[in-house]
Amino acid sequence: MADLPVKGSVTPLASMIPAEEAHNAAKRVREAISERQKELDRLSLFSSENNNLINLVQRLPDELSHEIMVPFGKAAFFPGRLIHTNEFLVLLGEGYYVERAAKQTVDILQRRGKDLDSQVESLKAMITDLDTEAKFFSATAVEAEEGLVEIREDYVEDFPAENKAESGGTQISEEEYARIMSRLDELEDEEKAAECASSDEETDRAHASSADSSFPHAFDGHGIRASLEAQLKDLGQSPEGKGVGQKQAAAGLPSVREYERHESIESPMKGLVDEETLQRVAENSAADFPERSLRAGSDLPKAFTGSIIERSHGLPPTAPDKDAANQAPLTNSSKPASRFKMRRGNR
């Protein structure tokens, strides 16, 4: 079990993305941003000019004529009068001009302004995009410099643990395995029977009954008490807490006293092991075999599926030593087997 196969791979980020390259990329992106920024400035200049022109055109026809200084050459002006203030020759582009009144001109200009605005918007969006890109590149560069590593591990689903147990025949002999499996089948049948018996009643009642009476029979809790008590030490507070809660729900007042006892005295905990806690542990140990959904019988009669399997692994106190970091599923499957073996030996 010590020679676990190494799962996944560790690659330093710097080897995949050299810091220098990331820096270069960031620089290039920043250059692109500055280019776009220039374009944006140009466009916003156009836009503001357009707005000024609109204002002017709107004001011009207010009067019949305007006194103006007419430019003459580069530096000279002479006084003049602007007449026909409602006639404009508007350049549409490509050398096409059209005669328009002030109002129509304003319409054209406004359409142009809208076009410009949309262009400005798209440019802005582009710039923000590039900005985030640049930030990402520089962040990557920094990470690569700091020596960040990437850890990759293929996700292996846990529930084909049975197959692994089979393949791990070196640990458990074929015969033993067969015995274990037959015993487990037996247990499951009993569990199902118990469940059937309790399923006629209400869910609450079923809960209570399975907690109080049916379970120990079905599971033969006394047989495994010795091993379970040893395991209890490893268990955190949470399963006990849950057990107490369950009991409170089921039995009411008397349990409160017990709860107090739980609270006040920590050490004689093992002495107080009541059916609930035992059941809890039994469930957990049973649930270690993903295929065996024993706990479903006492918990949720309907749910006999993978979700339970997942939950059994989600419960950290199942066996804290087992969860220790990088242990292979092989451990998971063989551990409960040994427990059952122990039980068989006791009987």
């Binding site: 020759l89 549409l92 050398g95 096409y96 001009y97 059209v98 005669e99 328009r100 054209i108 359409r111």
Partner: peptide, 15 residues
């Protein structure tokens, strides 16, 4: 687009 928006009687010039 602008030409499409014009009325029939509009004066159009080409430079």
């Amino acid at each position: 687009k602008e030409l499409d928006l014009l009325k029939e009687d509009a004066n159009v010039y080409k430079l």
